[in-house]
Write a protein that binds this DNA or RNA. Structure first.
Lengths: 225, 225
DNA sequence: GTCTATAATGTGATAGAC
DNA sequence: GTCTATCACATTATAGAC
């Protein structure tokens, strides 16, 4: 089902710089190795030795470039957060029906989560262990996008409610509902797979293939008048 | 709003044994200390020294009773999982309208999450690091309750759909939707608080006070014909 | 800049006296 | 059963040669 979303996904998801044919600097190699290790294992689980191995160098060089594990981690975090599809302004500001916007946003999220399962796991894990660091990074990134995206969504919802087209629901609940429905199955994937889907021999992939549509309809039905 | 649910909550949530006036055995003291430490910090973050301190004994005794950190952890896990309100049979089998059942289940979950924020954090964190251990424990507990609770819910949903009272929605999606909407805000609490609620100066407590009702209505509207 | 070697500390686990 | 002392190992971080 290819539509205008495809462009979006390519734009939002593949933000990693093109690999040029120039050889990367040592610092960049370390950064990428650390990125991979931290994303997979989190701060606690990551090992400086593993990062050195991934980068094909020795531990001492990590400290030469980044001083400490924590500073290396701090250098990584914003780049992880920026991978998230937070810039949905284009969808929101576009001229399409409210329902279509909801649908596209959900497709975008589900598609992203499918392609980048580690990123959300990372965010959730770290937010449970050390909230301040993550929250501050989030704030900076959200606010730096010019006008705050949450405000945009709020506007969109309240405008539609004022037109009498949807039931009045506190916008903060609606936003959180949308995110919950998209994100939670990926966080709790082992339980979803083994406790619920397994009894019908549905694979997680199949489940997700339908999920985007199911959630869209679920939400639209929940709020439409 | 006190109703029949109150009994339920007291029954399901307060499962810890009564503290008798007999002094606990060393093994029990260790168990409780380990329970607290693991619940708060997870397996990786927990420290045998901290457990010993909490118990007011020394590390060697931990190993005398439980051999290793992992065995101690394994002893704890089922007790943590059993705290979860999985036995909702009474609600499901009761003679009340479908909508009322949904409402009560959600009230039960939200109320539990409010009182036991650490338990779900623990489950989610551990499931992301070492799924097998948690999933197996879940399976045992779910199946041991006699007839499987998931089957009961499936029956309930499909019966209502066959009566033409609700839209047809795959039961696995509906179950996961309900759990997502209840659980996710507690997992992502720091983000909910600092990125969304803060701009309206709503406290998390206020947000949760309304949440039970908001979700119930949201779900009922989403599926009713 | 990059390496080897090693320090400094934390942590799970055990030995052995009482 | 309970304690002190200690081992064995992993891990972050640094010193110093090249």
């Amino acid at each position: 089902m290819p539509n205008g979303l495809t462009l979006w996904l390519n734009y939002s998801v593949n933000m990693k710089e093109e690999t040029t044919h120039q050889s990367k600097s040592t610092e960049e190699i370390i950064f990428q190795a650390a990125y991979d290790e931290f994303l997979e294992k989190g701060f606690e689980g990551a090992r400086m030795q593993n990062i050195a191995n991934r980068a094909g160098i020795n531990k001492a060089l990590l400290h030469y470039y980044y001083r400490s594990k924590e500073r290396l981690f701090d250098a990584i975090v914003p780049h992880v957060i920026r991978q998230l599809p937070l810039s949905i302004n284009t969808i929101i500001e576009d001229q399409m029906p409210f329902e279509k916007k909801i649908e596209l946003i959900i497709e975008l999220y589900i598609s992203f989560l499918q392609k980048n399962p580690f990123i959300v796991r990372f965010v959730i894990r770290e937010i449970m262990v050390n909230p301040e660091k993550l929250v501050n990074t989030f704030k900076k990134i959200i606010d730096n996008n010019g006008s705050n995206i949450i405000d945009k969504i709020k506007e969109m919802i309240e405008k539609e409610a004022n037109l009498g087209k949807i039931k009045s629901i506190p916008y903060e609940h609606l936003i959180i509902n949308i995110v919950s429905l998209c994100v939670f199955p990926f966080i709790a994937r082992p339980m979803v797979e083994n406790l619920i889907l397994s009894r019908n021999k549905i694979s997680f992939e199949e489940f997700i293939k339908n999920r985007s549509k199911v959630i869209s309809e679920f939400i639209i039905n929940a709020i439409k008048k």
